[in-house]
Design a protein around this nucleic acid. Structure first.
Lengths: 229, 229
DNA sequence: ACAAAAGTGTTTTCACTACACCCATGA
DNA sequence: TCATGGGTGTAGTGAAAACACTTTTGT
């Protein structure tokens, strides 16, 4: 006996992406103005539909790349949203992914999408469908992840100052941190390389630049190291 | 302009359930022997397909109820698995849910499914498709949740002893805990009611029974209390 | 010389860990 | 009376939090 799959309902499976960015000040998300019905003209996450011959991770990468031109971006599956009437036009299920990108380094690559815009999380507009809930869930996942994995660096340029890193963590966790405690905690992790180079942009004295040492981090992981902030 | 949803691929969306139970000794999962092709005769999670007019949570509840008769069970969405050839018979996506049930109290309700069986996690058989990966992910989610939410109580009878609770945490976290430290940590949480009643089954002295005080817990939550073990 | 941001240590506090003996009871 | 599991407290250790002054340099 073969189970009769053919009797079962098939559905459209969408993928929506919450794209986080950081400009040194605020945590931001990238939104687009929808240029088709339903909800034309309202702000929305970028999204698309899963194709039969790809898996969800691939679909998310494709959709992100298609709308932003970006490649090689940190992405993670978040949750699958399935309220029956979530899309008034048609029964769709949506698997949400979130992505972390460094705004500064990729600023010029966005020219092909005139309708997209970065919003500070705090004053982002209302979104279509259940996209607000998706963003909420993404934010809380991001909080958790940054405490337990070094994914924060995905949001920063390759070289960054300790203060930028602290600002990033403060934006994500939405709380003030103590400068000395933060610095010594990060230094204790021993996964950054302190460069000879200084960033002279923000002060007369200048502040040292750091990079994330992925190789060292992975080596430490294998030895049982646990990232924790 | 309307986006042309009709050009997009539709897929079968399955729901698979990892059902955890606890018998006072070991953490267990409920599996069924598949009685249809493909993979007939092999062990598998219980599953079914999403129907057009229900959301995933409802589908998971329906599937669990249909195969076990159980109702009012803690369930949580885990992850959506989408490898292209995960089901050799047909392109399906599967959203996994995990459920927590108290084996003792529901032991008799399983009579309608002769092909289902509880397995200790440690010596569970190999499962079909990507179900092993689903179980792995469920176990690690369960570990995290039990540390940060009082969901462990879902796996115990309404009344339980401190030792049962400790055994449960030891099974889930897969490590030995210190009896005195565990007891005082739990007592410090102040979310259990110590009953006058004793369980005389396991010793001559008898051990006090407790129940989870959901009302108190919710009240404390509102006041900013953070559950942490 | 002074303004403005960078950089740096110590003390206190609190949570977590390790650890061992008496109690109550049924047989 | 003794064997069995139940129940309980304290001291020590280590991580996190609180906290302020000196350095550098461009203007």
């Amino acid at each position: 006996m073969l189970n009769d799959y053919s009797k079962e309902d098939k559905v459209l499976l969408a993928v929506d992406c919450i794209i986080f960015g950081f400009d040194g000040e605020d945590l931001k998300i990238l939104l687009i103005k929808r240029d088709f019905e339903p909800e034309k003209g309202k702000w929305s996450l970028i999204g698309g539909f899963l194709k039969k011959e790809e898996n969800l991770d691939k679909a998310a990468i494709r959709i992100l790349n298609h709308l932003t031109g970006l490649d090689n971006i940190y992405m993670e599956q978040l949750y699958t949203f399935s309220k029956v009437d979530r899309d008034p036009a048609e029964r769709t299920i949506s698997t949400a992914y979130y992505a972390l990108i460094d705004i500064e380094s990729h600023n010029n690559e966005f020219t092909n999408v005139e309708t997209s815009k970065w919003f500070s999380l705090k004053n982002a507009p209302d979104l279509i469908f259940d996209h607000n809930r998706m963003v909420e869930r993404a934010v809380s996942r991001l909080k958790y992840r940054t405490k337990t994995k070094p994914i924060g660096f995905e949001l920063l340029p390759e070289k960054f100052t300790m203060l930028q890193l602290q600002n990033l963590y403060e934006s994500i966790l939405n709380e003030k941190l103590d400068k000395r405690n933060f610095t010594s905690k990060i230094n204790a992790l021993d996964i950054l390389i302190k460069l000879k180079e200084k960033d002279m942009g923000s002060s007369k004295k200048g502040s040292y630049l750091y990079t994330f040492d992925a190789e060292k981090y992975n080596k430490k992981l294998k030895e049982g190291f646990v990232f924790k902030i």
